[in-house]
């Protein structure tokens, strides 16, 4: 059964407030080598049948806002 892995992240140009909080928290734990953290969401979607194009539709219709997000679609399984 195929599944789609869809990763939604903030565009590089958009400041990632959650990522900055993670930077601070990791530094507080003593990891001084942390330079930057970017966060995102990953959706694992099981399908009866489907295609990568359908995954792109999921991005444009629901999962991402094109103003601030990048949406990467991968098709896996068989």
């Amino acid at each position: 059964m195929p599944f789609l892995k869809i990763t939604v992240t903030l565009k590089k140009s958009v400041e990632d407030a959650e990522g900055q909080s993670v930077v601070k928290a990791l530094k507080l734990l003593g990891y001084e080598n942390i330079k930057d953290v970017r966060t995102g969401k990953v959706y694992f979607i099981e399908l009866e049948n489907g295609s990568i194009e359908e995954g792109r539709e999921f991005c444009s219709k629901l999962l991402s806002n094109p103003v601030i997000n990048e949406c990467k679609v991968e098709l896996d399984g068989n």
Partner: peptide
């Protein structure tokens, strides 16, 4: 068309 967004607060 979507021309803008309301993103997470900068204060997180």
């Amino acid at each position: 068309e979507t021309e803008a967004a309301l993103a997470q607060n900068i204060s997180n």
